[in-house]
Computed example of a mutant assay.
Amino acid sequence: MSIPKAYVEHVAVWVKDIHWHIRFFNDVFGMTLREVQGTVEDPVQYWNLGGMQFMSAPDFEGPDGRLGHLGVMCEDMEAALAAAWQFDVSEMPQGRNWLRLPDGLAVEFIQASPAASVAQILAINPRV
């Protein structure tokens, strides 16, 4: 079995002030809205073009930016899931494509659409 090709498609973080984070990533990096749960005025979750997902947690008393989960885009999600089950992982309530690693990290496995080439994304050298 070959190793599935995949990349981190988004990073989800819990934040107290979701609007501050939306403005920061928009104004500094130009990362604009891709999707919102709730409304733009009152978002529960906000995804931007650039791979960030902000999850609103205004009552949290710890540090901002707590990692919620990694969203990993897979060329072959079923093969990646099969490989993952060889490790000490557990399924999460969100569904069979959500796994909790032994250290607590949550990983969302996402199937790439046929038109989206994981190999093309992985071929991009961000340092050039």
Rank of each mutant, 00 (worst) to 15 (best):
H19V: 07
W47S: 05
F109E: 02
H10C: 00
E35Y: 09
V8K: 07
E75T: 01
D88R: 15
P93I: 09
Q45T: 13
D88S: 14
P93A: 09
I110Q: 00
D88V: 12
D76T: 04
V11C: 06
D76K: 06
A12S: 10
A84Q: 03
Q37T: 15
W20Q: 11
D42R: 10
D64I: 12
E41V: 06
R100L: 00
D17Y: 10
W20H: 12
G62Q: 10
D42H: 15
W98K: 06
K16L: 04
G30H: 03
V72N: 03
F109L: 10
V40I: 15
G30D: 14
D76H: 09
G68W: 01
D76N: 15
E108C: 07
K16H: 09
G71M: 05
D88P: 11
R96F: 04
P102G: 11
A6S: 08
E61V: 04
D76R: 08
G68R: 02
V11L: 04
M52P: 00
W85R: 15
A83V: 07
E9D: 14
A119P: 01
H10E: 03
R96E: 14
G95T: 07
T39N: 13
E41F: 10
D103W: 12
A123H: 01
G51D: 00
D76P: 02
W14M: 06
G38R: 11
E91V: 14
E9S: 00
G65I: 08
K16V: 06
L122C: 11
M77K: 12
D88Y: 11
A84W: 09
W20P: 00
F109G: 04
L122G: 05
L101C: 03
F29P: 06
G68D: 12
V44G: 00
G51H: 00
Q94E: 14
E91T: 15
A123N: 11
N97P: 00
V15C: 02
S113H: 12
P63W: 07
D103Y: 10
S90E: 13
H19E: 06
R34T: 02
A84Y: 11
R34L: 14
L67M: 15
V118R: 09
P4E: 06
D103F: 11
R34M: 11
G51M: 05
R34G: 11
I3W: 14
I121A: 06
L81Q: 03
V89P: 04
H69I: 08
R23M: 12
P114Q: 09
L33I: 12
L67K: 05
A57M: 05
D27R: 15
C74W: 06
T39D: 13
E75A: 13
G30N: 09
F29T: 08
G62P: 01
R23H: 13
P58W: 06
G50F: 03
L99K: 04
A6M: 09
L81M: 13
P4N: 00
S2P: 07
D17N: 14
G50Y: 02
P114L: 01
M55K: 01
F54Y: 01
